[in-house]
Amino acid sequence: MRAPTVVPTGVERTFDEDEIIVTKTDTKGVLTYANKVFLRVSALSEAQAIGQPHSLIRHPEMPRAVFKLLWDSLKARQELFAYVVNLAADGAHYWVLAHVTPSLDAHGQVVGYHSSRRKPERAAVSAAQDLYGRLRAEERRHTGAKEALDASWAMLQAMLDDQGQTYDQFVWDLTNASAM
């Protein structure tokens, strides 16, 4: 397993537009499956990835509010699309457009989560970086993790309210604008 003290190098890694990063986790977010694209881009071996929390690749510049939104959506049995920057085991980072969904068994019970990630357009990444930078700056103004989360969550909700949209609409506006 990667040491928890991986330092971001500032080197960005990309992957091809026709590639999809796929992972599956249990209900606690522990990796149960990772495809070869995930392993290559995250600089992890299968042995290093499987059995570890998906947060293994959490980049320190990802705002807490986005992860709250993710977990709130999954607990409500909803899918979520989000722009995410991840941290590879070698310190490189990579941006993805993630689609995360609950996985259900034959009885309709949630047994885990499935995530497919595509290569995002640069314009969408730039817009996400701007928003996420503002959210992280707000988080850094607070000493406690809960206060930081509450502050960035309030800021995200206020921004979305000002624009009259949901986070899903924000993501799709970025996706559609950068595709033109």
Rank of each mutant, 00 (worst) to 15 (best):
V100H: 01
V6M: 02
A65F: 02
A106N: 13
L69I: 01
F170T: 00
G112L: 12
Y113R: 05
R58Q: 10
A47Q: 08
L70H: 08
D130R: 10
T23F: 04
H142D: 00
I57W: 06
S103K: 13
L56I: 15
D150A: 15
V30Y: 07
V7C: 11
G91T: 06
M1S: 14
D173A: 14
D168N: 14
A151W: 05
L80Y: 01
R40W: 07
T23Q: 08
L80V: 06
I20A: 06
E138F: 00
H114A: 10
A127Y: 03
S55D: 07
R141P: 00
A49T: 13
S42N: 04
M62A: 12
Q48C: 01
E12D: 09
D173F: 04
T5W: 12
S152P: 04
A47P: 00
I20R: 14
A89E: 00
L31H: 05
V111L: 11
L31Y: 02
V110S: 06
H54D: 01
D168W: 04
A179S: 14
W172H: 11
L104D: 03
P60I: 09
H59K: 05
A106V: 10
R136L: 11
M180D: 11
P63N: 13
V37G: 01
H107Q: 15
E147W: 04
E138A: 10
M155H: 11
G164H: 08
S115V: 12
A127C: 13
F67M: 07
D150T: 07
K146G: 02
S116K: 14
D105F: 10
A154Q: 14
A154L: 15
R134Q: 12
P8R: 07
K24D: 11
D105T: 08
N35P: 07
Y132Q: 13
P63I: 03
H99C: 08
P8E: 00
S42K: 01
G164R: 12
Q163M: 15
L39S: 05
Q109F: 10
A148I: 06
R64E: 07
D105A: 06
Y94R: 10
E138L: 09
L31R: 02
L87A: 00
Q157V: 14
V11P: 05
K28M: 15
D90T: 02
E61S: 12
W71S: 06
A151L: 06
L131G: 04
